[in-house]
């Protein structure tokens, strides 16, 4: 493929990647920002979202759109409930201590994976997209007769992929509105800034924590439901989203939602763009080192107020 179409294709793919990453990372960013704990099981909530989407869509086997909408409405809240239950029974008792939370969520990761393996099985399972049209994209070339349009081999996207991008941005805007405008956002931001003072102002910090933990898991699950018609549900699919969201949150700057969104776009897109210029594995190595070096020279992240 020529350079131009190749780059456009990489950008389109990067954008889809980035929008799903954005939702997942926003979830982790909230948990990280407000509760100051690392949720190692965040990727497993993503996976649960995808797996539940498959299960729920199966109940409405008749029509793919109906199944998908049901999955979209049911899977994220179910995952959020599971997260809330874990926060109540375990994390709350740990006082949300950072180190012990890491161990507890590693434990949760094992538990979720094993339970999914035992019930859902080891295979990758698809969810049918509610609609999916291939959209070929034209490109310009100079021929003897002057400039002309043509459709390069493979330069295309699908209507569903475009929908994922729009939906992810809409959901992210919703989160932002909630944080910036609503009363809930005020409470969350107060808790984030200073837990003790918030407590003194009668903010029920532990309930806030439970809410944030559930919301974070729900956002991860929402990202997963959106992506599962493109990528299939599998019990080990949580690893990548965890690592990538983790990176996005740090690069974006702790607790900065704006930073998280930009970092998600940066990471999602750069992966695609670098792959145009280098052999695939080399591209991965370079992209990985790039992220590391950004942090080395901007330890507070690209958009953070001050070094962490």
């Amino acid at each position: 493929m020529e350079f131009g179409p190749h780059l456009i294709l990489a950008l389109l793919e990067g954008l889809v990647q980035a929008s799903v990453l954005m939702l997942t990372a926003l979830g982790l960013s909230l948990v990280f920002g407000v509760m100051r704990v690392v949720n190692v099981a965040h990727g497993e909530f993503f996976m649960l979202g995808a797996v539940l989407a498959h299960v729920v869509a199966g109940w409405f086997g008749a029509h793919p759109a109906l199944g998908f909408i049901a999955a979209l409405l049911l899977a994220p809240p179910l995952v959020a409930l599971a997260a809330l239950a874990f926060d109540r029974t375990v994390l709350h008792r740990l006082g949300h201590d950072p180190e012990r939370t890491i161990v507890a969520t590693i434990g949760l990761l094992y538990v979720i994976q094993q339970l999914t393996l035992m019930t859902f099985g080891p295979e990758a399972r698809p969810v049918t997209a509610p609609f999916n049209h291939r959209i070929a994209i034209p490109w310009i070339e100079t021929t003897a007769a002057g400039l002309s349009f043509y459709f390069p081999w493979g330069l295309s996207t699908t209507s569903y992929k475009l929908f994922v991008v729009v939906a992810a941005f809409a959901a992210s805007a919703g989160v932002w509105l909630m944080m910036a405008r609503g009363r809930v956002g005020l409470v969350l931001r107060a808790t984030q800034l200073d837990r003790e003072t918030a407590q003194a102002f009668a903010i029920p910090v532990h309930q806030v924590y439970g809410f944030v933990f559930a919301l974070g898991a729900g956002l991860a699950a929402l990202g997963a439901v959106l992506v599962v018609p493109i990528r299939q549900a599998h019990y080990l699919m949580g690893g990548d989203p965890l690592l990538l969201s983790f990176i996005v949150v740090i690069i974006g700057g702790l607790g900065s939602l704006r930073g998280t969104v930009w970092a998600a776009l940066l990471i999602g897109m750069s992966d695609g763009i670098v792959s145009v210029f280098f052999s695939p594995t080399l591209a991965k190595i370079l992209a990985t080192l790039l992220v590391a070096l950004v942090l080395v020279y901007r330890p507070g992240g690209l958009f953070g107020a001050k070094p962490a």
Partner: peptide, 9 residues
């Protein structure tokens, strides 16, 4: 890797 389209190019 979990998405492949960019490599088919």
């Amino acid at each position: 890797e979990s998405s492949f389209t960019k490599y088919f190019a």
